[in-house]
Structure formats: C-alpha cells, structure tokens
Nucleic acid binder design. Structure first.
Length: 569
DNA sequence: GCCGTTTTCGGCCCGACTGTTTTCAGTCG
C-alpha cells in the first residue's frame, strides 16, 4: 500500500467521523495526517519499517498504530467498523455543492437516501422539505448541484483556468471603482490543476464591482452575492469567487485568499504565538486588537519575522520554517530561461515549419531552440526514418546560416523501446546535439520493469535528458508506475537531465519532486514540448511549476547561455 | 486525535453567505 492510498483512507475515515458527528478536532486530525502523508517524498512503508511514523506532522500514537496496521496487513479494523454505520455511496452526496456532512446524515437517517439518484428522486418529488432545516430553496439548490456535478468533472487545466481568469481580470480592472486587483487562490499558487478561481479587488464601492462581476457575459449562474463576496458559475463550468475589500485590507486579503488553507492555518498559529491575530482584514496586535499596518504582502511576512514567501511555495510544506531561517530560495524567473529544448516540427507530429518555430523562439527572446522530432518507431507521430532526419539536418544547417540571434540545435525525442534500448542506432545518435529519451508505448508494465527500462535508457551514453518521466496526462490518465528514487539516482550517476515538461497537460516531472532533484544536484530542463508555434511560450508555465518545486536558476539546465550549453552537450 | 519555549490537559484559525429560522446552524473557503 502506497502513501497515496494511505492518505485516501485516512481522509475517508475523517469524512466518516464527520458524518458520525464527532467533534471537528478529531476528524480534522485525520485530514491533517492525510495531507502530510500525501506530501511525503519517501514511501510510507519506509516510515513503518524504520518506526519513524511519528516524525510525520499530525501523526501521533493512535494514527501511527492504525497506519502500521494498514500498511502491513492492507486492512484496518477500525475503518471496517466505521463503514458499517454509513455506506460508501454517501461520499458522492458530499460532492454536491451545498451538501455537507450534517445534511447528508439527515438525508440518510430520515429518508434512507444513499445515492445521488435517490436524492434526485426525492428532491423532485418534494419530500425533502419535510425535513428540519430543509426548505424549498434547499431542494432547488440540490437539483442544481446535481446538474452541475453531472456536467463537469470539477477541475480545469492550469492554462484554461488562467485564460478564464485573465478575461475577468481584464474586464474588472477597467472598472472605474477598482483600485487594486489580483488573481488569488490555487491559480496564484500555480497548482497543476485548478478547481475554482479566486479574484480579489479593492474598491470603495464593492456593490458596483459585485454588480459588474455577477452580470458578466461568461456567467451562467450566480450562486452567492453579498457585500464582500460573490460566487458564480461560468458557462465553461468553472466556479469563480470574487472578494472585494478596502484598499487598506488588500494585502492581508491577498495573502488570505491566496492560501493554501494549510499555509494560512500555520501562519495564524505563528501569529498567535507572537501575540498577534491574523485574518483577511488585517494583522492585529493582541490583546489591543490594533491593526499592524502593512502596505503589501512582503510587510506582512516581515512583521511575522519571516522572509517573503512567494505564492507558489505556500503549501505548508516547509516554507514557513524556511522563512523563519531566512532560507527561502531565490526562485527561478521567466527571464532566466535562455532557450528551450523539446519542440516538434512538420517533420513529425508538429504543425509548423522549423523556421517558424525558430522565429517564434527568437521573438520570445530565446537564444536557442532544440528541435526534437519523434524517432522512427513513433508511427503515431510520423516518427522519422534515418534518411528523413538527415534531410532535416541539412535544413537546420541552412536556416542556422540565415537566421541571426537564434540557434537551432539538432535533437530527437527518441522512443525508449520496450527493452530499454533506443530507437536509433549509435551512428545517428552520435550526430545529434542532444537526445531526449521518452516512453511512448507499453504503459502498463510493472513498476520494476518500467523502472529498469527507463534506467537502461538513461545509461545510454548518448542520452541527454529523460522526457516526461511518468507520462501522465493531467485530468486524462495516470502516469506509468516507476520508482522515481531509482530513476533519480541513475540520472545522477549518468549525468542525465530530468525534463520538466511544461505542457499544461503534463507538468511532468511533478513539482513535488523538485527538492529531491535539487538535493541530488540533478539538473532540470524546462521544456515546452511544443507542437505548434504558440506552444513554445508554454515554457513559462513550466517556470511556475519549477518555482513551486523550489527550483532556482542554478537548478535549471536551460538557464545556461548557448555557449555553456554547447560545451555541456 | 494531536500537541507543548505559556500547557502532559485543554486547547485546537477565522469569517462570509444562505436558508430556515426568530437567533443560528450548516456550508464553504
């Protein structure tokens, strides 16, 4: 049983306890432990074997015992008992907007409602309003919630969420009553997938802003509208929350609504320790309740005796401790990127000519672009036979002569075949400036086999970097099973770079491994995996993910200038 | 159920909005 499964089970227990009506501190302890376990980089069985479970924040005597039972036997008596009181199908009901544990409990106990289907039937029949605390409006909202649940998965890719947010920001920033405006929430923290959008505005006239916001063309329904907060569902299915505060409150509110929830909780606890109180309206001295003036987020951190913590790091994964030690890394920035690798052209499955791709890279201020069309086995992507790649080299030479200020590097995204060998022979590989090796087939191998396969490819002396390490497609498919530790060790031993694929569908390698890579001094290359001209700029998303993974300029391969890159290659 | 440079017991972050109520519980972030 891996840490993800353990975390899910703890969360399940927490939810069951919540349904049961246990005090919040008890079930929240389960949620907290679940989050810390999910955030571990080592596997959970290591902690069990070495008896180190209690080192995990939020895991005490009781949970350590339960986790040990879970990991060693694969089962947990306590959970089996709990499950007897509530059927698992109730969890679906909790997905419905406006339904929490208390209401779900009533629905189950009074009306024997066990599933979304049961609930829909009851709501339509009008039987819900007989229950205490359920009125006409509640039934209506439940039906709306079910409708929404059916239509939308609930998550969006980062890039799509950003595009929606920017449209709203553009609109609201033109509003004469807007003073300051910012994206907040998980989008500002650059999470890889986004559930809803948070936007913060400061204004002297909140009502006017709310009115404009709730009547935007892109709004499907308004789910809440108050003096300081409104929520809407966009036609695209994304939920947007808007908060409006005074301009004095803006920095505190920005910090608050950027989150994460876990980061905020830890920050408030710190404030409390320092005899201060923190909420979205300010930082206050206790017990006088006097506001501690801060003009921006930087000052808030300062007052709490912390270095500035960039939004991407605010996951309560060690950033506050780092802030206290003045050890927050100076994160990589967009301007540090000097060139990109992993781009495709018409020679394989790309949609643009080599020259157009190069010109776009140049327009973005880059100094080099590494072209890497697919190798021959990649029939799905018009992989190139050796004759065709030789033709491509000629074209690259010719364009390089003509274009000034940008250099096209000759590379390939070479398939890692089933047995770990590469899809071109050494004669071709030796001629290339760089070689990205990637898995594009036989995804369902066992972890052991897949790890062995990838390590064999890493050991090839022509391999420069490993492409999209897990092959995951966000909101699409799970990655293949690998042992990342063994792969990282091999990458270190053989001097191979690990790609951070910046395509918003991938963001692979996961940012959670950033600090492992950094510790091992493995270089990361932020690669757009561009298949068309406007895909090249995706490297910017990758920079956000790299920042989230605590990476600095020195950790990233393509922050090097052309000369250094060529020397390395 | 966890945790401790105020505590080994008694705390545990805090506020907005809705709907169903007459003063607040539930939900959400």
């Amino acid at each position: 049983m891996d840490k993800k499964q353990v975390a899910e089970i703890l969360e399940e227990i927490g939810t069951l306890l919540e349904l049961k009506g246990e005090i919040s501190f008890k079930f929240q302890a389960y949620f907290r432990a679940a989050r810390s376990i999910d955030a571990l980089t080592d596997e959970i069985d290591v902690y069990v074997k070495e008896g180190r479970l209690r080192e995990i924040p939020g895991v005490g005597e009781g949970l350590a015992e339960k986790i040990t039972e879970l990991v060693t036997t694969g089962k947990l008596k306590y959970l089996e008992e709990l499950k007897k009181s509530f059927p698992e199908s109730l969890f679906q009901l909790l997905q419905i907007q406006g339904l929490g544990p208390k209401k779900v409990k009533v629905l189950y106990e009074k009306l024997k409602i066990k599933s979304v289907a049961d609930l829909e039937k009851a709501a339509r029949a009008g039987t819900l309003s007989n229950l205490d605390g359920f009125g006409e409006k509640t039934s209506e909202n439940i039906l709306k919630g079910i409708e929404h649940l059916k239509k939308h998965s609930g998550y969006s890719l980062y890039s799509n969420a950003l595009a929606e947010a920017e449209k709203i920001i553009t609109h609201l920033s033109k509003h004469p009553k807007t003073i300051r405006i910012s994206i907040a929430g998980s989008l500002r923290r650059h999470k890889e997938i986004i559930r809803d959008l948070d936007i913060l505005v400061s204004s002297k006239n909140p009502e006017a802003i709310m009115e404009t916001f709730t009547t935007l063309d892109s709004v499907e329904t308004v789910t809440a509208k108050g003096e300081t907060k409104s929520s809407v569902l966009l036609k695209s299915g994304i939920q947007v929350d808007l908060r409006v505060v005074t301009d004095t409150e803006f920095p505190y509110a920005l910090h608050h609504f950027t989150g994460s929830k876990e980061h905020n909780t830890a920050m408030r606890a710190r404030a409390k320790q320092m005899e201060m109180k923190m909420n979205e309206y300010g930082l206050f001295k206790e017990p006088s309740d006097k506001l501690i003036p801060c003009k921006d987020e930087e000052e808030i951190f300062e007052k709490l005796d912390l270095s500035y913590i960039p939004p991407e790091l605010r996951e309560n994964m060690g950033e506050i401790e780092a802030g206290a030690r003045r050890a927050v890394p100076l994160l990589i920035e967009e301007k540090d990127i000097r060139g990109v690798f992993h781009t495709h052209s018409l020679y394989s499955d790309g949609a643009a000519t080599i020259e157009d791709m190069a010109k776009e890279a140049q327009r973005l201020g880059l100094k080099y672009i590494g072209l890497s069309d697919h190798s021959r086995s990649a029939a799905y992507a018009h992989g190139m036979e050796p004759e065709r790649i030789k033709k491509q080299w000629k074209e690259i030479d010719e364009i390089n002569k003509r274009l000034k200020g940008i250099r096209i590097l000759k590379g390939s995204e070479v398939d890692i075949l089933g047995d770990g060998s590469l899809d071109y022979d050494n004669a071709i590989l030796a001629e290339l400036d760089f070689v990205i090796v990637s898995v594009h087939s036989r995804f369902t191998m066992s972890e052991t086999e897949m790890t062995k396969r990838i390590i064999k490819a890493i050991q090839n002396k022509y391999t420069t970097m490993l492409g999209h390490m897990t092959g995951r497609l966000l909101l699409g498919r799970e990655g293949y099973h690998i042992n990342h530790k063994e792969i990282f060790q091999a990458a270190k031993d053989y001097g191979v770079i690990i790609e951070l694929n910046a395509n918003p569908h991938r963001f692979d390698v996961d940012w959670r491994y950033g600090r492992d890579l950094k510790e091992l001094e493995i270089k990361v290359s932020i690669n757009p995996d561009a298949h068309k001209v406007d895909g090249i700029a995706d490297y910017r998303f990758g920079v956000g993910i790299a920042r989230k993974g605590w990476l600095e300029k020195k950790d990233v391969f393509n922050t090097m200038g052309l000369e250094q890159i060529m020397k390395f290659l």
